[in-house]
Nucleic acid binder design. Structure first.
Lengths: 129, 129
DNA sequence: TATCAGATTGGAATCGTTATTGTAAAGACC
DNA sequence: GGTCTTTACAATAACGATTCCAATCTGATA
């Protein structure tokens, strides 16, 4: 509860439900999945609240928005630096906790000030193989 | 013209206009941008034709669909292996022609059969700096 | 507890994308 | 060439994800 206060966002029952759903969630859920889940407890929950809360959390740096799935945005509450590996068959996403020390040579960067990187591996998962 | 025939898709005036717009295009255009461009010459051009053609080209392996921009799909006619760097301010995308030899250790892959990777750098471009 | 900035709601609008449908072109066979 | 069958096309309508908006409500602070 104290850690929620540290988020510096106004806490409401709806937001707490969303936070609770996200906490420790490794499923990289979409807005729709969060909605379906929290609606059980809060039947009046609206999509606007989901999106507003996710946007607020994103701006405060508490969740990451993943661009992996072209069909919809997915969110990742795990802010520790990590990458992802996606199964091209079942679309499930897993975390890759390994740091790759790759850098862009000055001449390749072309005046860019690089602030970060994302690596996305793809292949077939154990189940789909 | 001969290279277009090699694509193994039926060539129509609309498709040729789209192909011409894509050829050598380094702007990583979205469907909307292609639409706006070819509409000048073909006022009856519809979005469906754009999407159908892009899908056909993608399936034949002639263009790549980029998932970099969460707001919309972008397409890259450059099929040579390369990565991208995105400006977080103006959303422009540039190519990174450098190979990074990174591999997932067996234990990290967790049963995954890795078939490829994408690296996406982000930062601020020369203009936005 | 009174106040108010910020949050919620629900519906409608928007935007990117996909499915449907009518039509035209391309083959196949005689 | 003429009919039948099949395929591909473009336009329209439909769809799903996301955003916007106005009215109402509420958590946090004084």
């Amino acid at each position: 509860m104290e850690r929620y206060r540290r988020l510096n966002i106004k806490l409401t029952p709806q937001r707490l439900a969303i936070l609770k759903h996200l906490e420790g969630n490794k499923a990289h859920p979409s807005a729709d999945e969060i909605y379906k889940s929290v609606k059980k407890k809060y039947p009046t929950m609206s999509f606007a609240t989901i999106y507003n809360t996710l946007e607020a959390l994103k701006e405060k740096g508490n969740i990451r928005e993943l661009k992996i799935d072209p069909a919809k945005k997915r969110y990742d509450p795990d802010m520790s630096p990590h990458h992802h590996i996606i199964c091209t068959k079942c679309s499930s996403i897993f975390d890759v906790y390994k740091d790759f020390d790759i850098r862009l040579p000055e001449e390749t960067a072309g005046g860019f000030k690089v602030s970060g990187k994302n690596i996305e591996f793809f292949g077939t998962c154990r189940k789909c193989k």
